[in-house]
Amino acid sequence: MDISVKNISFSIKNTVILSDISASIASMECVGIVGPNGSGKSTLLKCIYRVLQPDAGEIFFDGSNIKNMTLKESARAVSVMAQDNSYAFDFLVEDIVLLGRTPYKKMLQFDNEADYKIVKNALKTVGLAGFEKRNFSAISGGEKQRVILARALAQNTSCLIMDEPTNHLDIKYQMQTMEIVKKHKFTSIIAIHDLNIAALYCDRIIALKDGQIVGNDVPEKLLTPEFIYYLYEVLSEVHMNKKTGKVNIIYMPSDSNICK
C-alpha cells in the first residue's frame, strides 16, 4: 500500500506544529522520520493514523482519501506502534495482542481458534513465545514494546507506523524490531532518534525541523556532518561502512577537552 500526504498543516492554538507537509511513501518502502524534539514527528504520524485531524491538507491510502474511509477500514490497512503504552488496568499479554484482531470483528463475534493462532505466531515472531498468560504490568519496558509490536502484527496490515519504536529496547531488540519490519515488507513510516539505526534499515529518510520538511533523501546522501549539524546542532563524522554499504555516524563532543 502506498501513502501520500498532501499539504498537511496542523496547529494548536496559535502554535504551528506542522506547516504544509507533503510526502509520499511507496508500497513496501521503509521511511524514517528524523528531527529534533518538538519538530512535529509524532504529530505528523498522528495525522496519518487518524488520532489528530489536520487543519488543512489531505492524506491518501492507495489513492483513496482517508476522510472517506471508516476507522475500521483504515485499521485494516495501517497498524500503529505508538510511544506511550501504559494502561490503567492490568491485562494478560494475550488479551492485548488479541485486541489487534478488533478491526476484523463484528459486534458479537468472539475470538476463534484462528485468532489465537495468529496471536501465538505474532508473539513468537517478536521473541515472546510463552508470554501469553503473563501480566502486562509485570513485564519489562522492552517486552511491553514488543507486545505492542505483536499486536500490530496480529492486525495483519500492509502498512506499519511506528513512533520511536526502539525506545526502551536493548540493541538486540532494536535491530530485531527493525528486521521484523523489513522482513514483513511493510510499507512503514518510523519516527526514530537513532540515526545509525535509521541509516542501516531505512530506504529513505525525511527530516523535520520546526514543522517543515528540511530533507528527504536516501540516508547516504542526506546524512552528512553538515546536515546533522543543521538539524541537531551536534558535531559528527560520517563514514561509509564497506561491509554494509551504509553510513556510520560518530558524534563528536562540542568541546574536545570535555572528554579528556
Binding site: T70, S74, A75, Y87, F89, F91, D95, L99, P103
Partner: peptide, 23 residues
C-alpha cells in the same frame, strides 16, 4: 456483555482505540 470488546479497548485509551478502528 455484547460490548465486551469495546470495553476492553476503552481501557487502552482513545488513541489506541482509533488505531484499532473504534471511536
Amino acid at each position: 456483555w455484547t460490548q465486551n470488546r469495546t470495553l476492553d479497548i476503552m481501557l487502552l485509551g482513545d488513541h489506541t482505540a482509533v488505531t484499532l478502528g473504534t471511536d
